[in-house]
């Protein structure tokens, strides 16, 4: 977990140009959208099976 976070920081905020910040932004957007979609998918499955 610590190694993954360190790698994430290395490829995002520690990148010398602004590309790293763009990466961080799109990673955050992707994580939130995919995370919420999966949450809804599991919730829909749970509701269907109950």
């Amino acid at each position: 977990m610590t190694a993954a976070l360190a790698l994430l920081q290395e490829v995002t905020f520690k990148t010398p140009d602004t590309t790293g910040y763009a990466r961080a932004g799109y990673l955050a957007i992707g994580a939130l959208l995919v995370g919420y979609t999966l949450f809804l998918w599991f919730k829909a499955r749970k509701t269907d099976h109950s």
């Binding site: 140009d17 602004t18 590309t19 910040y21 763009a22 932004g25 799109y26 957007i29």
Partner: peptide
């Protein structure tokens, strides 16, 4: 001026 980080704009504003 802002470089690659400006690309956040394309999802930031529509969101």
């Amino acid at each position: 001026q802002m470089g690659a980080v400006q690309k956040i704009f394309y999802y930031h504003v529509p969101s």
